[in-house]
Design a protein around this nucleic acid. Structure first.
Lengths: 341, 341
DNA sequence: ATAAAAACTTTACGCGCGTTAAATTTTTAC
DNA sequence: GTAAAAATTTAACGCGCGTAAAGTTTTTAT
């Protein structure tokens, strides 16, 4: 089998002129069926593919799409990334996945490197509070970007995420309806803006229902939420700071730590008769089904968030990288009843 | 601020000739300190960066490195990917992360796409049993590749992973020493070759210790190990197939499911007096600390596996992409005692 | 069958940068 | 201070492909 060096050579071997072959690779449907057949036949025999560097050198718009998440070791983001990747591939794009691993510096470096990739667009779930807003703003100015999961005011051409109010309102109402109104368990300085929205929603819903809100703030920084939740829970349990027999955690990863702490302390969690505590949470983390007891939680509408994110990005790209108006799309949560509350 | 279009323009603005600027970007130390200073000064003022597509078009070897894992939603791989990425960046390379998401088709497509990226090298953790061996072989022939985590006989220039015998031997010996010898709990058709090595190691160690091995094989396909483990455990517990009060799971994700099933059935797991079952496992999954009870397991030497993998890849690259002899490096496990056994 | 439309071929230039050779300048060494 | 060495400049070509213009062939429509 001859080793093909470039399109010139391949064109010769396939008996088609190079410009037509070039056209074919840009869009196979743009050439006559017979020509297409001849090219594809040659393609089978010779295994040639255009040099992507030469291809992208001229085009100002590549077929690359950047996907940036704040913390890939969180299976939530891994799952959503998977969906986003697949959608991009299905649409004929090339996704490149990056994780900021919880660090601002890395997030900036990723955006920096992404620019030279000249992507057609970027799907960005920012770190949140610790994001370098001005760096992101600069980036968004030069690359069509859709934010998802975590909103930063005014940044990006659009935002797609989950409706935090819907999450908390459902969990609070459920717990109240079936028992005591819950306390709210969260980190004092949460990394993610969703956390703040959830606290506010909790307070609002509680007041609306005529109950006094009770927010428990625990210490801890970084992205090791499970351990932070566990330590916080141990402290809270030890100091008997729980005013109610039901707790709503800001997110599932904290709840996983909370449940571990309860188990260690021999506290039975759940809605059965012999249980002394009920714990619910938000997110429907992939592992929430396997906690002990399994975690009652409000589930993200993964599919819709992911699908709408890519849809929006494609619209943005087709629209030349600009929308007239920045839109924010929020999907409601779905309550998932399990054993913990 | 003027918008710089190309190196020509930037060179003019910095007062240095283009070939010298080009040289600088290839290696900043290859130019005189005074020239370097002038370039870097201009760099501050004008924010120019070479067009990577034009740069890579000529070079047969880019600074790209591909990292391919079988299943990124498994935090184990997310963690190791993080380490690999950082090492690559530190060494001046550009890592690109891909996940096969458990699918052979995707793995092949990734390798396909990777080839056109012309990476300097690739770190590949293959799917294992369901990998397309011939596709990987073809890929390795044209791209310097180091396999890690999951070995495929003879493929890639080297393999770095964990010593499965060390894992199982430590867990079996520990359980035997402190109680009954364990049964071995695994999937009937495991996706990963490590699983087979672990079973063999289990049998060997048990026989060496003078005990009769007892392997429990459960049904289930795919990468949803937790659910497979849970279902399998429920079945095993229901049918009372457990011959001993101690169980060694092939891997932590199965164990997570196993523990969830035990909890559901009200079976107390651990080494305390009131416990009827002990469960240990292998991997030290990031969540193993938060299971209920926390999971006794044999930990991968993450750091060494990751560090040696990149080291080996860099050696391979410097060596022109070929080693005289394929090497296999295995790191032993470290027993992590927690509450479950 | 014939004209118009569509697709293709030929030719040629440009993209941004790597790289080389020869000429020139700067630095180093004694 | 001078010669040799090292670095830089100038000029020019090539990489693989996109793309445009002009001419030719094939297809479509009547």
């Amino acid at each position: 089998m001859t080793k093909i060096k470039n399109m010139e050579e391949f064109a010769a071997l396939s008996g088609i002129s190079r410009p037509t072959v070039s056209k074919y690779f840009h869009d196979p449907d743009s050439v006559r069926p017979t020509t297409r057949a001849r090219i594809e036949e040659a393609l089978e025999r010779f295994d040639y593919r255009p040099n992507i560097y030469a291809v992208n050198q001229n085009r100002k718009l590549t077929k690359n799409i950047g996907i940036v998440v704040p913390f890939l070791a969180d299976p939530f983001f891994a799952e959503i990334a998977r969906y986003l990747e697949q959608s991009c591939i299905a649409a004929g794009y090339r996704p490149f996945l990056f994780s900021a691993h919880g660090e601002q510096k890395l997030e900036n470096e990723i955006l920096d490197g992404l620019q030279s990739l000249k992507p057609a667009g970027v799907l960005l779930a920012p770190l949140g509070r610790i994001s370098d807003k001005s760096a992101i703003e600069k980036f968004c100015a030069s690359v069509p970007t859709v934010l998802f999961d975590s909103n930063l005011d005014g940044l990006g051409a659009a935002f797609i995420g989950s409706d935090n109010f819907s999450f908390v309102s459902q969990t609070v109402q459920y717990m109240t309806r079936t028992g005591e109104p819950p306390s709210f368990f969260e980190m004092r300085t949460p990394a993610n803006p969703n956390a703040n929205k959830r606290r506010k929603a909790y307070v609002e819903v509680m007041e609306r229902l005529g109950f006094e809100p009770h927010v428990i703030k625990i210490e801890g920084a970084g992205w090791a939420f499970e351990e932070i939740g566990r330590q916080g829970a141990l402290k809270v349990l030890d100091e008997r700071k729980l005013r109610t027999d039901s707790v709503l955690c800001s997110n599932d990863r904290l709840a996983i730590g909370f449940l571990a702490a309860c188990f260690e302390q021999g506290i039975r969690v759940g809605r059965k008769a012999d249980c002394t505590l009920r714990v619910a949470s938000n997110d429907d983390h992939p592992f929430a089904k396997f906690t002990c007891p399994s975690l009652t939680t409000a589930a993200h509408d993964y599919d819709n968030v992911a699908a709408r994110s890519v849809e929006t990005l494609f619209e943005l790209i087709e629209n030349g990288g600009k929308f007239e108006k920045r839109t924010e799309t929020l999907f409601p949560a779905r309550l998932v009843l399990r054993e913990s509350a």
